[in-house]
Computed example of a mutant assay.
Amino acid sequence: MMLGDGLYHVLFMLIKTINSLIVKNSGKKDSSVVAPGASVLDSETADYDEIRRTEFFMKDQIPNKVALSGYVVLAIISVIVVPFIFHQLKWYHILVAYAIAPILAFCNAYGCGLTDWSLASNYGKLAIIIFSSWVGLNNGGVVAGLASCGVMMSIVSTASDLMQDFKTGYLTLSSPRSMFFAQVIGTAIGCIMSPLVFWFFYKAYPIGDPNGTYPAPYGLLYRGIALLGVEGISSFPKNCLNLVIVFFLIAFAINLIKELLQRYETKLGLHRFVPSPMCMAIPFYLGGFFGIDMCVGSLILFLWERRNKQQATDFAPAVASGLICGDSLWGVPAAILSLLNVKPPICMKFLSAAVNAKVDSFLEGI
């Protein structure tokens, strides 16, 4: 569903861009600038702050030629250097990875914009399966899959991080070029610091020891995915691939239905009730707690907008930031309480009817 939703919007943006270029070259006025049902007067009296932000953001943008040439140069460097580090990967493997990475990067940036949650690891696992299966077990497919995962995740995660930085720059009237070069400098520093930090931990602690301080459980998980990849689709759970294809198509269908309703049905506004496939998919990936949190937060915001829409528009980002910050900071006292072996006075669990009957009979016996 994540990939289907992202690819749909990739195709949608390409079609809109091509149509806009055709209209621009033909000299016709692009009617898509004004929202359906809105008059020209409405578009002219738009929010001044948004107009000012857009003008400031667009006047200092990075030229497309610079962005494209920079990506090509990095791809050439990776095609040459990475096979020397991981000889299981060939130059054409890296070339294919860089060819499909922009599509996955767009999908991740779109999902991160919707949910503020980067799913780069999800696309990295997809790269593990593809490249480990391509290289094969006898040719070092496990190492090749894990190395290609690192390449893919570095591209995909950087795209979503940069888009979040651009969003911050847009809201604060900061220069996009300043935001971009700041991330370039930070990435360059990370290329030096990350290996040093890893080397420090690798020398100081037994990394990967199940009984050690740093068991690295995700290492076993990603290696297991690579083993599944080299063994082929036959090693996957039954009907796994069928479910992937079906829900990929469902994501496309949901977006298409929403687009048709939004374009041709404007009275009832039914398109507002069509769910987002990306937001539907994330609770399956992260767990139900995320879906419940989003549902409660959306309900509070809905009621707030019904009571005072302007106040909700002005203060909702501040309230959301406070909730996110408070939830994150709670990890510090929770860790301290855990180190002190402090147990909560009340424990709550949800059990099935059968298990609950067993617990009741056990308590009665006591």
Rank of each mutant, 00 (worst) to 15 (best):
G186S: 03
G70T: 02
Y8H: 10
H9V: 09
V33W: 05
Q311R: 13
I225V: 15
G145D: 01
G141R: 03
I192L: 11
L299I: 14
S43K: 10
V342M: 09
R272F: 06
G6I: 07
F302H: 11
N19Q: 13
L41G: 04
A38K: 13
I192H: 01
H9S: 06
P217D: 00
P217W: 01
G27N: 04
V332Y: 10
Y48M: 07
I85W: 01
S178D: 11
I15P: 02
V40L: 14
A188V: 14
Y48F: 08
M278S: 07
Y202M: 06
L260E: 05
T54D: 06
G169Q: 00
V40F: 11
E364F: 11
Q183V: 03
D209I: 06
L196R: 10
M153C: 12
K16M: 12
V143S: 11
F86I: 12
K238Y: 09
G326Q: 02
K59G: 03
S298N: 10
G111D: 05
F290M: 08
S361F: 10
K167W: 08
A216Q: 06
L256Y: 13
A97Q: 03
S32Q: 09
K267M: 04
F289E: 10
C107S: 10
A105K: 03
A320F: 09
A188I: 15
I51D: 05
V23H: 05
Y170S: 00
N25Y: 11
